[in-house]
Design a protein around this nucleic acid. Structure first.
Length: 597
RNA sequence: GGGGGUGUAGCUCAGCUGGUUUAGAGCGCCAGCCUGUCACGUUGGAGGUCGUGGGUUCAAGUCCCAUCACCCUCGCCA
């Protein structure tokens, strides 16, 4: 058979495989030249593939072989054949699994030369992310990245296995679908057959999975790609992977138990760590009060306290003023916090101010239990004493206060608490704390549009205190919505859905969606719900984030093979590119671009 | 859309208050030497649009303005 000259000796083993037990065997390795050490009369080479490194010895009198070996450069691709031999005892490399042996080469096939790579393929190479992304295929050769992607694969496999074991069916849903104007901005795909019409790429498979429930697939899951045309962050990419699932006839407990099983199984399979179950539960209200946010890091023992009632009787202007203006006074007691310097406290105050706080008041508690420094004077009156008592202030404490609007006070103290977590809150790297945050509000007030809108999505079941509450006081209605949170990161979000057509209509009305508009946007779904929609609910969990957290990566780009930059470009391919004129003609699209500078 | 940071050799960086040479270092690269290295060692060498454009100045890597790229972040992400 003609092979175009590309015949080569196929490997018998990988570069991570050879041990003393192979000594004496004739083997062939295929791989990349990692390094060479040229000693003139002989050459050592390290051959690399994704399984490991094996030392190859060239020499032993064959001049042609030696010359070829001397010509080898990093990242050349070769096939090397020879006999495995034990290294002399003094030359064993104990740091490598293959370090007991080496391959005494008698044949070297250079399969492909490499240009000098822009950086060396090693974990300890310091390379800017920009360069790494441009040469992503080289970056992915680094052992760390190979470990990351392998870990990701194992994690995904374990999830699929556990859902399959639990009787779930993985169903693929369309990429080319109908735009749903609520929620995240969508990517559009123009239709050639229907000029002026567009498909949208799904921001999530939400509607399809609910229709699968109507279709009777009572346990659905999918490892699904989602696309959102929003601005990016370290933990957000324009396309990302969700573990999406939906169940019929559920309650929260069934969904929690199902998800906990799969997530715990996957974490245990991929990391070997034991994940305690059930996960902790905390209501949204409690979380906002104690931790100032809806994604608490429960490893952190520090807790926020509301001392607005005490502030009311205070003579201290900063405390009292905020409460009189309809705001709150919230405090964070930091045991041992007296060790913080003035400068460190100012650093925290800087962060608090970035988040909109007017300031960060503080006082330390001295050995006799008296407040000293900062706003200590404001704590001397009766109200101050009551406040200290409520906080349980003890010698060595640092007390931090934010007097502000509720939202600002929460955000500022949440950030301060987060920053102090490792030093004073007992947060340890490498530990996991998963929890469910439950009973989210159903609606949020949109200040810009002066209207209530769905906090999760408009298919979420309300928990009405009395009939009609969603119209009379929408802000007070809780929802059967829940978030999965790990170490202070939101992993996923879900709810028990509305399956009743009339209730769905009332919720649409509450968010200002008329019958007509609802029909236009979701008519096919509402119609489906008239054919026997079972009660159902589910969740979507961001897998990139979860995997990044487990690998202690700073950034989800570290666990995505070909990620985009913070400005949604691909440095390797150059995407996005200017539209091709002819393709645009086919699509009957013309762009109006601002004039070039 | 706003704020902050970075940009000098292939890579990672230094370059002070504008003037010390022809803008440096380590790694990498190229060439020589080296019979047990494993981040091999050693000798020598090549390599620069100081992100880009404009301005100030006798003189700009350095100061000013604009712009681009990347990173972080606020808004945004039902």
């Amino acid at each position: 058979m003609s092979d175009g000259g590309s015949a080569f000796t196929r490997r018998t083993h990988t570069c991570g495989e050879l041990r003393l037990e192979h000594v004496g065997q004739r083997v062939t390795l295929n791989g990349w030249v990692h390094t060479t050490r040229d000693h003139s009369h002989f050459v050592f080479g390290d051959l690399r593939d994704r399984y490991g490194l094996t030392q190859v010895f060239f020499g032993d009198g064959d001049a042609k072989l030696l010359a070829d070996a001397q010509s080898l450069r990093p990242e050349d691709v070769v096939a090397v054949s020879g006999v495995v031999r034990a290294r002399p005892a003094e030359n064993v490399n104990a740091e490598r699994p293959t370090g007991q042996v080496e391959l005494a080469a008698d044949r070297l096939e250079i399969l492909n030369r490499s240009r000098t790579p822009p950086f060396s393929i090693r974990d300890d190479a310091t390379v800017s992310e920009e360069v790494r992304l441009k040469y992503r295929y080289l970056d992915l050769r680094r052992p760390q990245m190979q470990r990351n992607l392998l870990f990701r694969h194992q994690f995904m496999q374990a999830i699929r296995n556990d859902f399959t074991r639990q009787g779930f069916v993985e169903v693929e849903t369309p990429f080319l679908t109908k735009a749903t104007p609520e929620g995240a901005r969508e990517y559009f795909v123009p239709s050639r057959l229907y000029p002026g019409h567009c498909y949208a790429l799904p921001q999530s498979p939400q509607i399809f999975k609910q229709l699968l429930m109507v279709a009777g697939y009572d346990k659905y899951f999918q490892i699904a790609r989602c696309m959102r045309d929003e601005d990016l962050r370290a933990d957000r990419q324009p396309e990302f992977t969700q573990l999406d699932l939906e169940m019929s006839f559920p309650d929260e407990e069934l969904i929690f138990a199902t998800v906990e099983s799969a997530i715990a199984h996957a974490i245990e399979t991929a990391t070997g760590a034991k994940v305690p179950r059930p996960f902790r539960r905390i209501t949204w209200g409690e979380s906002m009060l104690r931790y100032g946010c809806d994604k608490p890091d429960l490893r952190n023992a520090l807790q926020i306290e509301d001392v607005s009632a005490e502030a009311k009787g205070s003579d201290f202007k900063i405390f009292r003023g905020a409460v009189d203006a309809g705001g709150v006074l919230r405090a964070l007691r930091v045991p041992g916090g007296e060790a913080l310097s003035r400068k460190e406290i100012e650093g925290l105050e800087g962060r608090a101010k970035e988040l909109g706080a007017k300031g960060l008041a503080w006082s330390k508690i001295d050995a006799s239990g008296k407040p000293v420094g900062g706003v200590a004077k404001g704590l001397e009156d009766a109200a101050g004493k009551a406040l200290l008592a409520k906080l349980g202030a003890a010698p060595g404490d640092l007390l931090l206060f934010v007097a502000d609007r509720l939202k600002v006070a929460c955000a500022a103290l949440a950030e301060v608490r987060r920053q102090l977590g490792e030093r004073f809150g007992g947060v340890k790297k490498g530990t996991l704390e998963l929890c469910w945050v439950v009973e989210f509000p159903l609606f949020e007030y949109d200040e810009d549009e002066k209207a209530w809108k769905a906090a999760h999505h408009p298919f979420t079941t309300p928990i009405e205190q009395y009939p009609g509450q969603i119209v009379k006081e929408p802000g007070a209605v809780a929802a059967r919505a829940y978030d999965l949170v790990m170490n202070g990161w939101e992993l996923g979000s879900g709810s028990i859905r509305i399956h009743d057509r009339a209730l769905q209509q009332r919720v649409f009305e509450a968010v200002g969606l008329s019958e007509e508009a609802a029909q236009r946007k979701f008519g096919f779904m509402l119609e489906a719900f008239e054919y026997g929609a079972p009660p159902h609910g589910g969740i979507g969990i961001g897998l990139d984030r979860l995997i990044a957290l487990l690998l202690e990566a700073e950034n989800i780009r570290e666990v995505i093979a070909f990620p985009k930059t913070a400005t949604a470009t691909c440095l390797m391919t150059g995407a996005p590119t200017l539209a091709d004129e002819r393709a645009m003609r086919d699509l009957k699209i013309r762009f109006e671009l601002p004039p070039a500078p």
